[in-house]
């Protein structure tokens, strides 16, 4: 093992972790506000990747307009899903709510496949593709930029929650729904907003992931890794998603680079089992585990 491989693997791991953190952020937003476990988070990533691809390549829009188009679609998707799929199930059992998002995931995946097929689509690189040399290792520039973009988006989200009226309202509902309602906050609007924001953060994650790999139906498989991330970081902790994402991203790359790429795929799930045994509420989650 030399410094060069170590640096390369670290950058790759951090880039993966940053994308994972963005995907997990959406998941945590939904869970905090509505207590819904969203199994369709991977499909949100997929839709984000494909809408951007459609706007950027098929319609030939400039990058910024394509991103805006993606955001509009993501917001619309989030609001529609919340209103027509999740709201009828308010008060139903956990298994029903989980299964409705599983069904939703299949619908979204199927529709995307109907429109775009199963072939991987090549997208002209949005982020510059060159390499830079750090510590003797040649690092791909786009992975470093993924890190930067993800960091900017995460900081933007953090500021939104700290400073803006809507952000504070969302935190209030997440904290205590009854109290928030008595203060005149519309819980319905907050629910819709958290689904919309989750879709937007998944869009960013999807576009970044599509840029460093390709636009394929396989983007979904990344969505499954959201679960180890959120369990590791704590289901209701935004900071936890960043730490969890980075731990999962790094451990996967290191195991893949130094030991066995096949085994690397299940490392996140082994970590997950361990953390469930030791600290089920995660590294940063509130110690408010459900009564069993």
């Amino acid at each position: 093992m030399n410094v060069e491989t170590l640096t390369t693997l670290t950058v790759y791991g951090l880039a993966d972790g940053a994308v994972l953190a963005l995907a997990a952020l959406g998941f945590v937003l939904i869970y905090k506000a509505t207590q819904v476990i969203n199994f369709a988070q991977g499909e949100f990533l997929l839709i984000g990747g494909y809408t951007f691809y459609a706007a950027f390549v098929l319609f030939g829009l400039p990058t910024t307009v394509a991103v805006l188009f993606g955001v509009v679609v993501a917001v619309a998707l989030g609001v529609v899903v919340e209103r027509f799929v999740l709201r009828p199930l308010v008060g139903e059992s956990a298994i029903s709510v989980i299964m409705v998002t599983v069904g939703l995931a299949a619908v979204l995946r199927g529709v995307m496949q109907l429109i775009f097929g199963v072939q991987a689509r090549q997208m002209p690189a949005v982020l510059p593709a060159g390499t830079v040399e750090v510590l003797g290792a040649r690092l791909p520039l786009n992975r470093l930029l993924v890190l930067v973009v993800a960091a900017v988006v995460l900081i933007a989200f953090a500021l939104f929650f700290r400073r803006s009226r809507h952000g504070v309202a969302m935190r209030a509902v997440a904290d205590d729904q009854q109290a928030a309602l008595t203060m005149g906050i519309s819980a319905r609007r907050v629910f819709a907003m958290s689904w919309a924001l989750a879709a937007v953060s998944a869009l960013v994650a999807g576009v970044l992931l599509a840029d460093i790999t390709a636009v394929t139906p396989d983007l979904v498989s990344f969505g499954l890794l959201v679960f180890p991330v959120v369990i590791l970081g704590g289901l209701d902790s935004v900071a936890g998603t960043i730490v969890g994402g980075i731990i999962i991203g790094l451990s996967e790359q290191f195991v893949s680079g130094f030991y066995d790429p096949g085994f690397a795929q299940i490392v996140p799930f082994i970590l997950l089992v361990v953390i469930l045994m030791v600290r089920p509420y995660g590294l940063f989650g509130q110690v408010r585990i459900e009564r069993v």
Binding site: V85, P88, L89, E92, S96, M99, V100, V102, G103, L104, A105, A106, V107, L108, R109, G110, V111, Q113, L114, V118
Partner: peptide
């Protein structure tokens, strides 16, 4: 050629519709 995609979509729709209308 669209059949596999259609299968997935219908599969998901069945789950969602049953949960909403006949849980």
């Amino acid at each position: 050629e669209q059949l596999p995609a259609l299968q997935v979509t219908v599969f998901g729709l069945v789950i969602v519709l049953f949960l909403i209308f006949e849980p």
